[in-house]
């Protein structure tokens, strides 16, 4: 179990930490969504790294190639990417409406406005 053997996974973890941190710690509604995207992409890296075979090629069957990387994680992550962008679009639409209703997209200011009756 060497460091390099799991290097891809380490980076995925680090990205996950960064993404989740932005989502929870930041108060700006747009930045939170950017963080959410990073959080999700870290999972893409996790899946795709797991599907890679050293010496393999892209799973498009052709003459003369023997070893292909695993196609299933690719399929799953294609779905996940699409779901991710759908969520982002909806989230941003909400942000636009929140801006129109509150005049701000900072979480703290929204809270303080809601507390006033």
């Amino acid at each position: 179990m060497t460091f390099t053997a799991h290097f891809n996974y380490w980076v995925a973890m680090a990205l996950l930490t960064v993404g989740l941190y932005i989502v929870i710690a930041r108060g700006n509604l747009v930045k939170k969504l950017v963080g959410l995207s990073i959080f999700q992409t870290s999972v893409y890296l996790l899946y795709i790294s797991a599907g890679k075979i050293i010496g393999g090629t892209a799973p498009i069957i052709a003459e003369g190639l023997r070893v292909y990387s695993n196609p299933l994680p690719h399929v799953l992550i294609l779905t996940a990417i699409v779901v991710g962008v759908a969520t982002l679009a909806l989230g941003l639409a909400l942000v636009v409406r929140i801006k129109e209703a509150y005049g701000t997209i900072e979480e703290d200011e929204i809270h303080s406005q809601d507390e006033e009756p």
């Binding site: 509604l29 929140i98 509150y102």
Partner: peptide, 8 residues
């Protein structure tokens, strides 16, 4: 309008 923030 709080429905929007709740949804977010």
């Amino acid at each position: 309008r709080r429905a929007l923030t709740a949804s977010y």
